[in-house]
């Protein structure tokens, strides 16, 4: 089983984590002014690169914190040492 490094708990088995999709998808500044198509793009459309992909992960069975990690979608290998919310890490 693959080990994923949680920025708080360290390396743990992948079943302790859940996937949160693409990282850095910003909430629209004025949601009410969006057309249906623009809204659909925000809700449903995600990058699907072959290679490094920045993703959100949650350490559900551990510290229950979200963090961002870069993973290679071809090899499943985690490329970056993940960074958590810096405001919460002392």
């Amino acid at each position: 089983m693959q080990l994923i490094t949680c920025p708080w708990c360290g390396p743990r088995e992948e079943i302790e984590f859940s996937y949160g999709g693409q990282a850095g998808v910003a909430y629209p500044e004025h949601p009410a002014s969006l057309t249906d198509e623009q809204w659909a793009h925000f809700v449903f459309f995600r990058d699907n690169p072959k290679g490094p992909f920045a993703e959100r992960w949650s350490h559900n069975a551990g510290c229950r914190r979200w963090f961002t990690a870069v993973r290679d979608t071809r090899t499943y290998r985690f490329l970056s040492s993940p960074t958590s919310n810096p405001e919460l890490t002392s």
Binding site: C9, R12, E16, A61
Partner: peptide, 8 residues
């Protein structure tokens, strides 16, 4: 001794 961990 002194460690704790949330895990499965």
């Amino acid at each position: 001794r002194g460690r704790c961990a949330q895990t499965l």
